[in-house]
Nucleic acid binder design. Sequence first.
DNA 1: TAATAATTACTCT
DNA 2: AGAGTAATTATTA
Length: 157
Amino acid sequence: MKPTLVQYAAPGWGVGEVWLDEDGRVFHSELPRPRPLSGLRAGSEPAQTLAGRLQAFFAGVAVSFHDVPLAIPDGFYGDCARALLTVPRGEVVTYGELAALAGYPGAARAAGTFCARCDLAPFLPVHRVVSASGLGSWGDLGVEYKRRLLELEDVAF
DNA sequence: TAATAATTACTCT
DNA sequence: AGAGTAATTATTA
């Protein structure tokens, strides 16, 4: 079985993509963004369920993706991912705290690189990782996007 | 091996 | 208090 592409349209956000590997694990995810559908659609039934849950999430519903299997790598990235999964909904951590939780105190900068490179949002709540003072950055989508994501979880920022 | 990164803490106005 | 600079860690070319 080959990797599967799941597309979902989130009203007010755009179209996001989720890639599932042969075992049904998520190894890549792209946040919803205004963009035309490429015509590829979710074929399998679990994929449709996943798309529905994602739409609910971006509508403000408190859904959890804890039962969604993620393709978490070994090493530093894996530790960061696992540490991030322990962050409850509605809480935010700083890059430095995330690094400390992962077992690498002082690796705040590397944690930032991990969050930037990691494409597993919103399964991995990388939007809950903020700077020590302020909101931090959010790459190409802009901090406003990050603020909206946090508002979905009733986080005042 | 050198450069990079979605940071952090300290120092000097 | 505010702005600027150096420091520390892991990954990538």
